[in-house]
Amino acid sequence: MKRGGVVYKSEFQLYHEGRPFTVVVRNYTEADFDGLIQIQRECFPPPFPEDLWWSKEQLNSHVHFFPEGAICVEVDGEIAGSMTCLLVDFRPDDPPHTWEEITDNGFIRSHKPDGNTLYVVDISVKPASRKLGLGKLMMQAMYQTVVHLNLDRLLGGGRMPGFSRYASQMNAEEYVQKVVSGELKDPVVTFLLNCGRLPVRLEENYLEDEESLNWAALMEWRNPFKNKNIQINS
């Protein structure tokens, strides 16, 4: 199956508190770069390191190597969020990796056109727009890409920003288990669970992230059309 050349655009009306919004999920282009960098500033304020915000060089690399994995969401014509992915080869028993290693420091030159997994580099939504459910809309768009490209899964390392509050009481694995069971809520892990993603394993020293104590939960959504354990009788 030849991959590439997919142009994504989905437009619809969204309603929040009785007010209609025109929402468009589409591939981002060079014309969007300034808006995408502003989203990073708003989403990742200090103590998150500024050098981890997108640069125009990185964004150029995204649209060059894998434009299908570079999407944004507009609300009433204004960019309010973005999501970036690349293709990798992944097996659950692969060695641990960091965000820098698997994404080539965010430049995605590590993109493998014949990879089996759509890997999330970043997902960001402006704080003022988060009640609109835009993150889920972008995640659903990428699930459609997984199916369209006949991949095994969508995968990515989810930050665990609530962990630092509980680290003196439990380890990272216990924390994630409590989030999965619903005993605790985590701003990122709980969001990913609500999007249908499940933990595969934990990654230590995944990303410089004070709130998560550098931990991340590697979480996946598996392509339901590639589940070999399901038999359909006609």
Rank of each mutant, 00 (worst) to 15 (best):
residue 22 T to N: 10
residue 33 F to N: 00
residue 48 F to G: 02
residue 133 G to H: 08
residue 116 N to R: 01
residue 40 Q to Y: 11
residue 26 R to C: 00
residue 98 T to D: 05
residue 101 E to M: 10
residue 125 V to G: 02
residue 61 S to W: 11
residue 87 L to W: 02
residue 63 V to D: 03
residue 125 V to F: 06
residue 1 M to H: 11
residue 15 Y to P: 00
residue 39 I to S: 03
residue 84 T to R: 05
residue 19 R to Y: 14
residue 73 V to M: 02
residue 173 E to S: 08
residue 162 G to H: 03
residue 11 E to P: 03
residue 179 V to D: 09
residue 31 A to Y: 05
residue 191 F to H: 05
residue 81 G to F: 09
residue 14 L to F: 00
residue 163 F to H: 04
residue 185 K to Q: 11
residue 144 Q to W: 14
residue 51 D to M: 10
residue 138 M to E: 08
residue 63 V to E: 05
residue 162 G to V: 01
residue 202 L to G: 00
residue 221 W to Y: 03
residue 22 T to R: 15
residue 104 D to T: 07
residue 158 G to A: 08
residue 206 Y to R: 08
residue 51 D to C: 05
residue 169 Q to M: 12
residue 35 G to D: 03
residue 220 E to C: 13
residue 188 V to G: 10
residue 154 L to S: 14
residue 155 L to M: 09
residue 20 P to W: 10
residue 39 I to K: 03
residue 178 K to I: 09
residue 4 G to H: 12
residue 145 T to L: 15
residue 136 K to I: 13
residue 166 Y to F: 11
residue 30 E to C: 00
residue 220 E to F: 11
residue 180 V to F: 15
residue 62 H to R: 12
residue 178 K to S: 05
residue 193 L to V: 04
residue 100 E to C: 10
residue 128 A to V: 15
residue 61 S to V: 12
residue 126 K to W: 15
residue 103 T to V: 01
residue 60 N to I: 14
residue 53 W to G: 10
residue 112 K to W: 05
residue 125 V to Y: 04
residue 137 L to T: 14
residue 225 F to V: 15
residue 93 D to F: 01
residue 210 E to P: 09
residue 180 V to T: 10
residue 42 E to P: 04
residue 108 I to A: 01
residue 24 V to Y: 00
residue 91 R to F: 15
residue 130 R to Y: 03
residue 66 F to E: 01
residue 198 L to S: 12
residue 178 K to R: 14
residue 21 F to D: 00
residue 182 G to H: 08
residue 58 Q to D: 07
residue 153 R to M: 12
residue 16 H to C: 04
residue 2 K to N: 15
residue 154 L to V: 06
residue 188 V to R: 11
